[in-house]
Nucleic acid binder design. Sequence first.
DNA 1: CTGTTAGCGCATTCAG
DNA 2: CTGAATGCGCTAACAG
Lengths: 326, 326
Amino acid sequence: MAELANVSVATVSYVLSGKDRPVAAETRQRVLDAARQLGYTPNQAARSLRKRRTQRVCLVLSSFGGVPADVRLATDLHEMADARGYSVVTLSVYDEARAQAAVEVLRGGIADGALIHVVGDHLAHDLLAGLAATGLPMVVLGNESGLKGCDLVRTPEAEACAEAVEHLLQTGRRRIAYMAHRFEVYRDKPMGRLLGYTTALDRHGVKERIVTGGADDRVAAYQTATELLSSPDRPDAIFAASDRAAISAIWAARDLGLSVPGDVAVVGVGNIDEGLISNPQLSTVGPLRHDYTDVVRLLFDRLQAEEPPPAREIVRSWTFVRRGSS
Amino acid sequence: MAELANVSVATVSYVLSGKDRPVAAETRQRVLDAARQLGYTPNQAARSLRKRRTQRVCLVLSSFGGVPADVRLATDLHEMADARGYSVVTLSVYDEARAQAAVEVLRGGIADGALIHVVGDHLAHDLLAGLAATGLPMVVLGNESGLKGCDLVRTPEAEACAEAVEHLLQTGRRRIAYMAHRFEVYRDKPMGRLLGYTTALDRHGVKERIVTGGADDRVAAYQTATELLSSPDRPDAIFAASDRAAISAIWAARDLGLSVPGDVAVVGVGNIDEGLISNPQLSTVGPLRHDYTDVVRLLFDRLQAEEPPPAREIVRSWTFVRRGSS
DNA sequence: CTGTTAGCGCATTCAG
DNA sequence: CTGAATGCGCTAACAG
C-alpha cells in the first residue's frame, strides 16, 4: 500500500484517517488512488491497539426478535453512534452461556462502551458488576441495584403493573390470572411485573393467585390462555407479562366464544403498536412514547468524558393505558 | 499481570491461551491466581493482530425484530460458533448507511467470517462483491447472483409463491391483491415474491394487478388490508409478503365482518408458528422446517479450510402450505 | 510538507 | 521448563 503510492506508511495513515496534518493535494490523491485500487481498509485491530480506542459501541440484547422496543433502542443507538463516528456491534444473550461469552468479549475490549438491555436472569448480577469494575463505560437498562460505576435506567414496572391490576379489581374482576415470563416463575421472590400483580391483589385482600407461564412466545401464550379459559372456574381477567402474549390471549378467548372484555378482560405489558389494531384494542402497561435518545446519550456522555462521570440514573415513566380489552 | 505472578509475559500467554507448552503446575497456578485477582482478560485487539485471526464470526441481519426466522438462524450460528470456540457479533443493516458501515467494519477485520442475511436492497450487490473479493470467508443468504468467492444460499421464493397464487386462482379467486414489502415496490422489475405473484397471474391470463405496500409491519398491514377490503370492488384474496402482514389482513377482514376464507382468502409467506394459532389457520409459503445448521456449517467449513474451497450453493426448499385461510 | 521511529499487548520463535 | 526478543499493522511524536 505505502509502496504503491510511493509514500511512507505515516502519510498513508494521515490521509486515510483524515487528520489535520497538511498533505500535498497531489500526494493525498496518490494515496487515495492506491487505496482504492488495492481495496485497502486499515486494520481495526491494529488501529485500536495503538489508539486504545475501538470507536465502537456494543449493544447487548436478550435476543433478536425479543422485545419489540429493542428495535427502537437499537435504532436510536445506531443513529447517535453514526453521528459521533462510532460503529455498533450487537451481542445476543439468550442464556447463561451467551452471557458468559458476551462478558468475555466485552472484557476483551471489543468496544469502548456498552448499552446493556437483558431481561431475565441470564446475565447474572456478578458478571455485570465485574464488567463495570473493569472501567468499561456502560449503561444498564434493568432493575439491577447496587451496580457501581455505570449508568442505570430503571423502569418502575411493579408500580405500573400494580396500577393495571388494581384497575381490573376496581372494575369488578376477582379471578385474575397472571401469565408470566418463564424466568419470573423460577425466581425465588416476585419482582417487577409479577410483583405488581401480587402487590395489587394483596392490597385488595384477594387471596387467589393464578400464575402461569406462556408469556415468552405467542403460541405458548395462546395455548396457556386456552387452557386457562377452558377450565370450569375460568379467570375473569388475564394480565399477561407481554403485549404479544396478551394478544394471543384475546385470540384464545374469541376462539372459545368468549367476549373480551365482557367475559374476560385482558391487559398486556409493553405498549406495542400492535395493541392498537387488535380487536378489541389492547389495554396495556408501558411507556407512552418509545424513545431512547436520553438513554443513548448517557452512554456517549460517558464515552466522551475525560474522567468517569458520576453514576447517573434515569427512571423511565410507565403508565397504565386503558383501552378496549379491559 | 506478568509481574504480579512473577513470571514472563510469555508464560502468562501460554497458560491463559491453553497451549500445549509444558508449564509447571505451581507456576500455572500462580498465573491463574494473579489473573483472577486482577480480573485480567487478554486484549483481543492485540491477540488478533498477532494471530491474524479474531476467532469471531459476524452475523449480518436486516434488523432485529425483522424476520422471525432470523432468530433460528442466530441460534444455530451461536451454537456452532460456541462448539468451535468462536464468538458471534451481529451487525444490523436496515438502510444504506448501515450497509456501508457494516461493510466497512467487516473490511476492518472485525471477524474471520460472515453470515449475511439482508433482505431488500440495502446491501448493494457491489458492496457485497467487494467484500467477497477481500477474501473474507462468507455465506450469503439471498438471491444475489454472480457473487464469486463465497457460498450462496438461495431460496426459490418466486416459484413457491407462484404456486400459492395459482392455488388461489384454481380455487376460483380472481381479484388477488399482493401486499408487498416496501423495497419490492420500488424495484425496477419484479423479483422473488412479487415475481411469483405476477408470474402466476400471467400464466392464467389474469390481467389485473393489485399491488400495495404494507407488508413491513403489522399496523401498516392492517391499515392497508382495511383499505383494500373496504373498497367497493374489494379483492377476493390477499397474498401478503409476510405472515405477519397476512395475519393482520385476517384481523382486518374479520373486523370488517368479512369471513376468511369465505369472502376473502389470505395467504402469507414465511411459515411462522403464529400461523398455527390464527383463526383461521394461515395458509403460507415457506420452509417446512426452520433449520439452518447446514447453512452455518458452510461458514465454518470455509473458516477452517486451509485454502479457499470452491463456492458452494444450497437451495432451500420452500413449499406452499395450505391451511384454513385459503 | 514528508519520512523515521517507537511502541500499543500479545503470540511466538529461539536461547537458555 | 522458562525468559528475552521479535513483529503483527497502525498512529503519534519527532526529525528533517
